Simulated assay, not measured.
Amino acid sequence: MSHAAPTHPTPTWSPLRLDSRSRPVQLLAVLVGTMALALSSYVSVPMVPVPMTMQTYAVTLIGALYGWRLGGLTVLAWLGEAALGLPVLSGGAGGITPFFGPTGGYLFAFPLMAVLTGWLAERGWNGHRVVLAFCAMLMGNALCLALGAAWLASLIGLAPAIAAGVTPFILGGIVKSALGAATLKALAMRPATR
């Protein structure tokens, strides 16, 4: 009786092929990803109590492009940089304070967003199926709003949390999801290189 080695499903979507790259290349990808996340934090539309930034676009895109494992790790590394005091969050914020204020729930949701969109992208919800890519991005944004609102509700109550922390961001979430899906579609149309 022979025992075959267990097979692990290979991702159906891996435009950067990071899962098959060396550790140094993966570490470089994490560094580049944290820089992209930091830059996205500076593209901001002031709103109260949480500004609308391009962070959720970058988080979902990194999840979809890096895969759920490396995407989630990249977002955690970026949040680690923020916790250490680096000015990588919205408006140049850093330190521990944003994790315990009104933005805490959104910040804690970001790694889960990357994991969700990466997991879905690996299973076909990607640039080859743009409607599913849009749905994956939208689900990531909805997860962020739900967790962010739950946290905010513990601070200011449910109705005010929905009014201030969800409703103003629904249209932005839809637009950023469409932009993310369009980005994935554009990448899927590129000829493959080796």
Score class of each variant (00 low, 15 high):
residue 83 A to P: 13
residue 84 L to Y: 08
residue 84 L to N: 06
residue 84 L to K: 09
residue 85 G to N: 07
residue 85 G to I: 05
residue 85 G to W: 04
residue 86 L to H: 08
residue 86 L to T: 01
residue 87 P to E: 02
residue 87 P to N: 08
residue 87 P to D: 04
residue 88 V to R: 07
residue 88 V to N: 10
residue 89 L to E: 05
residue 89 L to F: 06
residue 89 L to Y: 05
residue 90 S to F: 05
residue 90 S to K: 09
residue 91 G to H: 10
residue 91 G to R: 09
residue 92 G to S: 09
residue 93 A to K: 14
residue 93 A to Q: 14
residue 94 G to L: 12
residue 94 G to T: 14
residue 94 G to D: 12
residue 95 G to M: 03
residue 96 I to H: 10
residue 97 T to V: 13
residue 97 T to I: 10
residue 97 T to P: 00
residue 98 P to W: 02
residue 98 P to M: 04
residue 99 F to E: 03
residue 99 F to G: 06
residue 99 F to V: 07
residue 100 F to H: 12
residue 100 F to I: 15
residue 100 F to S: 12
residue 100 F to E: 05
residue 101 G to A: 15
residue 101 G to D: 14
residue 101 G to P: 07
residue 102 P to S: 15
residue 102 P to Y: 15
residue 102 P to E: 10
residue 103 T to H: 04
residue 104 G to D: 13
residue 104 G to N: 10
residue 105 G to Q: 09
residue 105 G to D: 06
residue 106 Y to A: 08
residue 107 L to T: 11
residue 107 L to D: 05
residue 108 F to N: 01
residue 108 F to K: 00
residue 108 F to L: 15
residue 109 A to E: 07
residue 109 A to C: 04
residue 109 A to Q: 08
residue 109 A to M: 06
residue 109 A to V: 09
residue 110 F to G: 08
residue 110 F to I: 08
residue 111 P to N: 10
residue 111 P to K: 11
residue 113 M to Q: 14
residue 113 M to P: 00
residue 114 A to W: 02
residue 115 V to Q: 01
residue 115 V to G: 01
residue 116 L to K: 00
residue 116 L to I: 07
residue 116 L to R: 02
residue 116 L to C: 04
residue 116 L to M: 12
residue 117 T to I: 13
residue 117 T to N: 08
residue 117 T to Y: 05
residue 118 G to F: 01
residue 118 G to D: 07
residue 118 G to V: 08
residue 119 W to Y: 15
residue 119 W to R: 03
residue 120 L to F: 01
residue 120 L to W: 00
residue 120 L to S: 00
residue 122 E to Q: 15
residue 122 E to D: 12
residue 122 E to G: 15
residue 123 R to T: 03
residue 123 R to F: 02
residue 123 R to L: 03
residue 123 R to I: 02
residue 124 G to F: 01
residue 124 G to K: 06
residue 125 W to H: 07
residue 126 N to T: 01
residue 127 G to N: 12
residue 127 G to K: 13
residue 127 G to I: 04
residue 128 H to M: 04
residue 128 H to T: 11
residue 128 H to E: 13
residue 129 R to Y: 02
residue 129 R to F: 03
residue 130 V to D: 01
residue 131 V to Q: 01
residue 132 L to C: 03
residue 133 A to L: 11
residue 133 A to Q: 11
